[in-house]
Amino acid sequence: MLGAQRLGFEAKNCAVFEDAPAGIQAGEAANASVVVITATHKHQIEISHPAVPGYDALKAQQNGDGRLSILGSTR
């Protein structure tokens, strides 16, 4: 929430990329969109969020309105 605030956004308008259960829970509590990075997990975790193996699976693209879209392959 602090990061969003410092950037001038509400957390609900942000995406959180996390690989730790505590970070996933913090993103959920902040009402942010959560994407789980699975590369660091040696075991299956139960999540209800999109997941990607790592950041190299993602690409940011600026839309005509100046907002970013994140493109990539999620599970």
Score class of each variant (00 low, 15 high):
residue 35 V to Y: 06
residue 12 K to A: 08
residue 58 L to F: 06
residue 53 P to G: 08
residue 16 V to R: 01
residue 27 G to D: 02
residue 62 Q to G: 02
residue 57 A to G: 01
residue 35 V to K: 07
residue 62 Q to A: 13
residue 61 Q to Y: 15
residue 41 H to G: 00
residue 61 Q to C: 14
residue 30 A to C: 05
residue 45 I to L: 09
residue 47 I to T: 12
residue 48 S to W: 00
residue 64 G to T: 15
residue 56 D to A: 14
residue 37 I to M: 02
residue 44 Q to N: 14
residue 39 A to D: 12
residue 21 P to N: 08
residue 30 A to H: 04
residue 55 Y to M: 14
residue 64 G to V: 15
residue 40 T to A: 12
residue 61 Q to G: 11
residue 60 A to H: 09
residue 25 Q to C: 06
residue 62 Q to S: 09
residue 47 I to H: 11
residue 36 V to D: 08
residue 62 Q to L: 12
residue 17 F to R: 03
residue 58 L to V: 01
residue 14 C to T: 03
residue 18 E to I: 03
residue 46 E to L: 08
residue 65 D to Q: 07
residue 46 E to V: 04
residue 40 T to W: 14
residue 65 D to N: 13
residue 37 I to G: 03
residue 21 P to K: 02
residue 54 G to F: 12
residue 59 K to F: 15
residue 65 D to C: 07
residue 60 A to N: 05
residue 26 A to P: 06
residue 19 D to A: 03
residue 54 G to N: 15
residue 44 Q to G: 09
residue 36 V to Y: 03
residue 12 K to C: 06
residue 15 A to G: 12
residue 28 E to Q: 13
residue 16 V to Q: 06
residue 41 H to R: 05
residue 25 Q to V: 04
residue 48 S to Q: 11
residue 12 K to H: 09
residue 23 G to S: 01
residue 66 G to N: 00
residue 14 C to L: 05
residue 19 D to F: 02
residue 61 Q to M: 14
residue 17 F to P: 04
residue 49 H to E: 02
residue 43 H to V: 11
residue 60 A to M: 12
residue 64 G to P: 15
residue 24 I to L: 01
residue 43 H to Y: 05
residue 58 L to W: 01
residue 55 Y to Q: 09
residue 19 D to T: 06
residue 38 T to L: 05
residue 22 A to L: 11
residue 48 S to V: 01
residue 57 A to T: 01
residue 50 P to W: 11
residue 47 I to C: 10
residue 50 P to Q: 12
residue 31 N to A: 12
residue 56 D to K: 14
residue 60 A to R: 08
residue 60 A to E: 09
residue 34 V to I: 02
residue 25 Q to W: 09
residue 32 A to W: 04
residue 23 G to N: 00
residue 62 Q to K: 13
residue 45 I to M: 10
residue 35 V to S: 04
residue 38 T to H: 08
residue 28 E to H: 10
residue 31 N to Q: 13
residue 46 E to P: 00
residue 13 N to T: 08
residue 15 A to V: 15
residue 38 T to F: 06
residue 26 A to R: 02
residue 61 Q to N: 14
residue 37 I to F: 00
residue 30 A to R: 11
residue 56 D to M: 13
residue 47 I to R: 05
residue 66 G to V: 04
residue 22 A to E: 10
residue 15 A to R: 05
residue 59 K to N: 11
residue 17 F to A: 05
residue 58 L to M: 10
residue 47 I to N: 07
residue 31 N to V: 02
